[in-house]
Structures are given as C-alpha cells and as structure tokens.
Design a protein around this nucleic acid. Structure first.
Length: 421
DNA sequence: AGGTATTCACATGAAACTATTCTCTGAGTTAGG
DNA sequence: TAACTCAGAGAATAGTTTCATGTGAATACCTGT
C-alpha cells in the first residue's frame, strides 16, 4: 500500500513526456533541416553548377527566353536543391517588368502526360471550377488550356520536370515534343524547360528533334565525395545540433558510408538524423558511431519493409511463392517460381496471372531491390532468369502473411509443401 | 577435331482487351410560374 | 420554361492477356582429316 502511494506521488511529480522533453539536449533547433525536403540557403560544393544554371536563367531576367536545360546526376547529388535554389533567387531579383515563373513538377508523382499538363495548367487557374479535372478530358484539351492560360499575359515560364527520365520511359516523349515547340504557338509568353534526370541514357529514347531542342544546355552533377559530404553535414549540423551533441567521428562516418553509395547526400543526412533521434530517445548525449551504424541498418530494414508492405497483392503472392521455393533451393528460375506461384494461387483461391506477366513482375521486384535477377542461358536447358531473394526469408514471409489476401495461406501452406515434394 | 544446326525455356515486344474513373452531352422528367 | 436527372458516349490509365518473335549456349550431328 505504501508502495502504491509512493508510486502515485512520483507520478504526480513526473509526466510521461518528461524524460523525452527534459533530455532533449541533442537538437538545439528544428530538425527539419535534416529532412530531404529542406532547401538550404547555402549549397556547398555546387557553386560551379549554380553558376552555370544562373547564367542560363539570367537571360530570362533580361527578357529573353532561357535555353532549355538538361540536368543529369545520381540521387542525392543536389540537382533538385540547386534548381529550387535558383528559382528562389530568381524570384527575389525579378522586377515587375521581367518576372520568371517557375513550375516544379515531380514526374515520379505525376507520371502521365495528362497529369503533368493538368497540374501545370491548374497552377494558373484560381477558380476551382475552371480547373482541369483529374480525368475525363482529352490530353489535347488540357494542353490547349495550358497554352491558353499561360499566354493570357506576357510572362516567362520555366517548367522544371524532375525525374524526367521516369516519365519518358513510361509514356514516351509526346509531352516533351509538345512542350518544346509550344513557343511557336504563343503570342505573349515564352516557355523553357529544365529537365532533371538520373539516367544519362534516357535521351536515346527521345525523338531527334526533341533531343536537340531540349538539350540546348547540359549540366552534369557528379557525386559528392566523402570530404564534400562531411562539409555538407557539418554546415547543417552546426545549426541543428547543440554543442557537443555529436562525437567528432560521427559526421565523417555518415559521409563515408554515403560516399560508398554513389555520394548520396540525402542518405547521409538521413543517417545522421536517425542516429541522433535514437540517441535522443534513449536519453544519451553524444551521438556515437554505434548510433550511426544502427541507424544505417534501421534505414535499410525500414525501406525494405516499406516496399514489401506496399506491394500490390499479386506481387506479394509472387514474393511469397519465392520464399516458399527458396527453402528448397536458393537460386530459382522463372519456371520454378511460376509453378509454385500457380499452386499457391489455386490453394488460396486466387486467379493466377500468366507467366508473361509474372516475368514482368519479377523484373519489377528486381528493380525494387527485393530480388536479384539476371538472364542466363543454360544451353539446351534453355534461357531464363536466375533469381535470388535479397531480403531475409523469414521476416519477409511474416510481413507477407499479414496481408489480408494471403492470410488463408497459413491454412494452405501444408498443402503446398506436399505438392512441392 | 572442328564446324554448324538444333533445341530448350524462357525473354522481350507489340497489340489488344478489361475495368475503372471521370467528363460531357442530350434526352427525358419535374416543378414552378 | 428552367432546372434537374440519368443514361450513354468518350477519354485516359493501370493491369493484364494474347500472339509473335528473339536469343545464348550446351549438345547433337555432320564433315573432313
């Protein structure tokens, strides 16, 4: 009884949040700066690229149409940040007589010609009723609307198409073709395009005319090396972290790890943030290299879990078949997997897809990094994909079985096991 | 032995189909004046 | 007569099937020595 009483007394003095609030001495300001969406005021080691881009865009401030630009570089090399930075700067200096409007479109999120045009057109339309709908219209109609609203008044418009290579791979170059010759049809305004892409080769998929019009200027962002990454992290760490919050070798380690993965600054920042957050949660003060290593593993695991969870159910079904088959043999072929998959579908009561489709789904899983697949020829044994899971078997299966559709798999499992042998 | 033709088991490509979501249009219906 | 309702036609897209063609190399088969 006395014990209980003392517990209540403690509870009165302390709040459940206290230990999280009181020990928050790692972060001194908003950790937002460590998130990938944050556009910093200074971009270390991108001075040259900023200069190049500024030189091109500045023609717009003098009233001429800036050249179209293609920007290449791996993820996390500061392409998007640089372009957004330039856009902000341009907004600051532009006078009423010569404004440059920037429209930013991420072609990962808006990955059809229709949705890109619709998004851009609606940027200029205040009245909700006049806006282009999400579907139902012809592309031609949305394109005309876009042209019309842009041309209503004299303006210079820079269209930034981020992850452009994705759009081109998916839908071809129709949109780029139209956009690149849109200036011929406009009386008042001028439009130029900044295309951002990961893949240097994507221009091979473009029509020769589009290619020459679009690639008037090219800028390539090389990956950051470990030293440069250290600088970038350092600048942000100074504002975000309290003095002495980090062990001195934490930043170099984050930088080195990220440098191994094609110099991805986003990755480095994420590692730093996650490491610091876990130390904070446990109420420890300096963030150590162990925290960073733990953070690295956590991030890797989280991304895998997230991708597996968000897979469409047929892909989950396929992946589940893989985990079942790979108990027997680690390296599988398309045919092996298809048989298992087919059996699994039958026992669970789902209509199986054709082998043609499964081949594509396997390639998709390969792209997502869930499996490793390579085409190999076995002579008379035929030519097929050799597939190997690159995610932990049991954990993945646990994730998959949670799916509603596959829950009946638990019951069906015994049946499959017998059919396999 | 050396060359080449076959063959296997899919890969890869293209076209067509289905289902879904949404708009637009025009005919039919209803309510109010 | 204006306002509303509703079915049917169009559009775009995602996901899939169907059909057709391509392919790397082990192996079978042939040729000439």
């Amino acid at each position: 009884m006395a014990e209980l009483k003392s517990m209540h007394e403690t509870a009165a003095r302390t709040n459940v949040f206290d230990k999280y609030i009181a020990t928050n001495t790692i972060f001194k300001s908003d950790r937002e700066m460590l998130r990938p969406s944050y556009i910093p005021k200074v971009l270390p080691h991108r001075e040259k690229e900023i200069d190049q881009l500024a030189a091109i865009v500045s023609t717009g401030l003098r009233g001429d149409r800036p050249s179209n630009v293609l920007i290449f570089g791996k993820t996390g090399t500061g392409k998007t940040a640089t372009v957004k930075f330039i856009a902000n700067e341009a907004a600051k200096v532009s006078s009423s007589s010569s404004t440059i409007d920037f429209i930013y479109v991420n072609c990962c999120e808006l990955d059809t010609n229709y949705s890109v045009l619709q998004h851009m057109a609606n940027k200029f339309i205040e009245n909700t009723e006049d806006r282009a709908p999400y579907n139902g219209w012809s592309i031609e109609r949305v394109y005309s609307l876009f042209k019309e609203v842009v041309d209503r008044q004299k303006r210079l418009l820079v269209v930034v198409l981020d992850e452009l290579d994705r759009l081109v791979y998916k839908t071809g170059d129709d949109l780029l073709y139209n956009l690149s010759r849109i200036n011929d049809d406009m009386k008042n305004s001028k439009v130029s395009i900044i295309g951002i892409a990961n893949d240097l080769k994507f221009t091979d998929y473009l029509d020769a005319r589009v290619k020459s019009r679009l690639g008037e200027e090219r800028i390539v962002f090389s990956p950051y090396d470990a030293r440069e990454l250290s600088d970038i992290l350092g600048v942000r760490a100074d504002t975000v972290f309290a003095p002495g919050a980090l062990n001195e070798d934490v930043i170099p380690l984050c930088a080195a790890l990220a440098a191994q993965e094609h110099g991805d600054a986003r990755r480095a920042l994420e590692m730093l943030r996650v490491a610091a957050e876990s130390a904070e949660r446990e109420g420890r003060k300096p963030v150590t290299t162990e925290d960073v290593m733990k953070a690295k593993n956590k991030i890797e695991l989280d991304t895998v879990t997230e991708t597996v969870k968000t897979l469409p159910s047929q892909s989950k079904m396929l992946l589940l078949s893989m985990t079942i088959y790979s108990e027997k043999r680690r390296i599988m072929t398309t045919g092996d997997i298809y048989d298992t998959y087919h059996n699994l579908c039958n026992s669970v009561g789902i209509l199986p897809l054709t082998q043609r489709r499964i081949g594509d789904l396997i390639s998709e899983l390969d792209m997502l990094g869930i499996v490793r697949a390579r085409v190999r020829s076995f002579g008379r044994g035929g030519r097929t994909k050799e597939i190997e899971l690159s995610v932990p078997l049991n954990e993945t299966r646990e994730l998959l079985v949670d799916d509603e559709l596959l829950s009946s798999y638990k019951n069906a499992r015994a049946k499959i096991q017998t059919t396999l042998i």
